[in-house]
Design a protein around this nucleic acid. Structure first.
Length: 293
DNA sequence: ACCGTGGCCTGACAGC
DNA sequence: TGCTGTCAGGCCACGG
């Protein structure tokens, strides 16, 4: 579930408490979460044990820890239901891993970091890093990822694939190889703010309109980071267990039948590639339909 | 190369 | 208070 703002909220929470710390204890349950590791859970634990954390980094929805004297990063992807929780110390009765707790790290200050994921769509992976075309060190696991709109100021960098394709613009916003970090919530919010329907084709939109969509995406995600992201339920909470407060500032997502804040007409929901698409039918003009024979 | 669908999983919620 | 169906913030693999 978490998109860029939620992952960034968690990254900041981790950075505050993990940077400079050394991992003194590791406990892992294995299973689906480590499916991308060729060497499995034991190798992952071996990389983490006694490692000193130097950095907590993020691109799009991927997050990773870097360590002193290691070329490998510990990559965390939360999928739909992944959580990372910090505790000052081990609570009584917390000795063994809880249900859906797949990995637990103990730090040299006694704090613990737990990775929880009921649906196991997320993954935890050790991956080597390389230096990408904009000079950032990123894990090879995330090599196909485009940069995200909050790390690249010049949004023209994202234009070419959008402008040259006849795919739906919403589909491309969700394509992490085109621009990363945007998921279903923020795609709909960015399109609403830009006044563009998600079923417009990329090559049917002007560069100006496309840049406007990218600006809106950066703007809405930046605002969401400031209030800790979007929580609809207890599935998304930050590292301290607190929800984010951006759901009250969503204009269209999850608001089918409610009045559009801009024009007062009813927000509609449609399905695009098996996923909900929320939009205002008057503020976001649909593409012209081909005349049926 | 694209679109649409279904699958991966569990839990929450609505309606009966 | 069940039960059953539907849905979910991500992503990937099919088939057409």
């Amino acid at each position: 579930m978490p998109e860029l703002p939620e992952v960034e909220t968690i990254r900041m929470g981790l950075e505050k408490r993990l940077q400079g710390r050394t991992i003194v204890g590791v406990e892992g349950a294995g299973g689906r979460l480590v499916r991308h590791n060729p060497q499995g859970m034991l190798d992952l634990l071996a990389h983490l044990r006694d490692a000193q954390i130097t950095e907590v980094a993020r691109r799009g929805k991927f997050m990773w820890l870097r360590f002193a004297d290691q070329d490998e990063a510990f990559v965390i992807h939360l999928g739909m239901s992944g959580q990372v929780r910090l505790h000052q110390s081990l609570l009584p009765g917390q000795v063994s891993l809880a249900k859906h707790e797949h990995l637990r790290l103990t730090l040299d200050d006694g704090a613990t970091v737990s990775f929880v994921d009921p649906r196991t769509f997320g993954h935890l992976t050790i991956s080597e890093v390389f230096t990408d075309e904009i000079g950032r060190e990123v894990p090879t696991l995330a090599a196909a990822l485009a940069p995200d709109p909050l790390e690249v100021e010049d949004r023209r960098r994202f234009l070419a694939p959008l402008k040259n394709s006849s795919r739906f613009v919403k589909t491309m916003l969700l394509d992490q190889r085109v621009v990363s970090g945007i998921g279903n919530i923020y795609a709909d919010e960015a399109l609403f703010r830009a006044g563009v329907h998600g079923e417009r084709r990329g090559n049917a939109l002007s560069r100006k309109v496309l840049l406007g969509i990218l600006d809106s995406a950066a703007e809405v995600m930046g605002e969401a980071v400031k209030v800790g992201g979007t929580s609809f339920d207890a599935l998304y909470v930050d590292t301290e267990g607190n929800p984010g407060y951006f759901s009250r500032r969503l204009f269209v997502y999850g608001r089918e039948g409610e009045a559009c804040a801009n024009c007062g007409n009813q927000i509609q929901r449609t399905v695009l590639q098996s996923r909900s698409h929320f939009f205002c039918p008057t503020c976001q003009v649909r593409p012209r339909k081909k005349r049926l024979q």
